[in-house]
Amino acid sequence: MAMLELQNVDTFYGPSQVLRQVSLSVEQGEIVTLLGANAAGKTTTMKTIFGLVKPRNGTIVYDGERIDHLPTDQIIKRGLVLVPEARRVFSRMTVRENLDMGAYMQTDRATIAKEIERVYTLFPRLKERDKQLAGTLSGGEQQMLAIGRALVARPRMICMDEPSLGLSPILVQLVFDTIQEIRKSGVTVFLVEQNANMALNIADRGYVLQTGKIILSDKASALITNDVVRAAYLGG
């Protein structure tokens, strides 16, 4: 049974349709990537999964349960979390407070402390800046914080919306290494990316979204050599 499954999802912003009959699935333990150009509907797909926009038609099932009518906080409670586009850290809060917000669903203080310590081990930069306001961090540090904030929620599945956007090549590498670490720890990963090359290198499978429709889906190794993908997303 799939961990996450979208079936024939239509999403609208007012009168304009952004997602058209989107169907995709992510199996437990996989890294699945969703590729697509700007404005193809990648972020809308994420927002629809998390109830930030409601789909007009179709179903979304997570862990055997329909979640398309649930409010966002109820979806998070089920162990499905999002690292949103543009990081969205709480700029007027400290690094530590951001991580505490990530652990909002956790009630056991000892577990929270342990999870935060784990994030600090993963990203020592964050520990150095523990008491600094998140708004004063560099873009790369904010991305680490956004990922760390999602990890302290102890997710069973993590969705990431363009985590490499605007980062230096070294940081991009760090982000993709981290994603592989996350999968190794048993967490399922659904990754939206513009950096198709990097994404397909670590993913098991991939989907290609074009103007709101899934036009291709295959094993990542097959997509890398696919002519359409090479022409459109891998620079020929």
Binding site: T72, D73, K77, L82, S91, M101, Y104, A153
Partner: peptide, 13 residues
């Protein structure tokens, strides 16, 4: 600061 991001932490807005 950011209601959508807060909801993504599990906060009931």
């Amino acid at each position: 600061q950011d209601p959508e991001a807060a909801a993504l932490m599990g906060v009931n807005i």
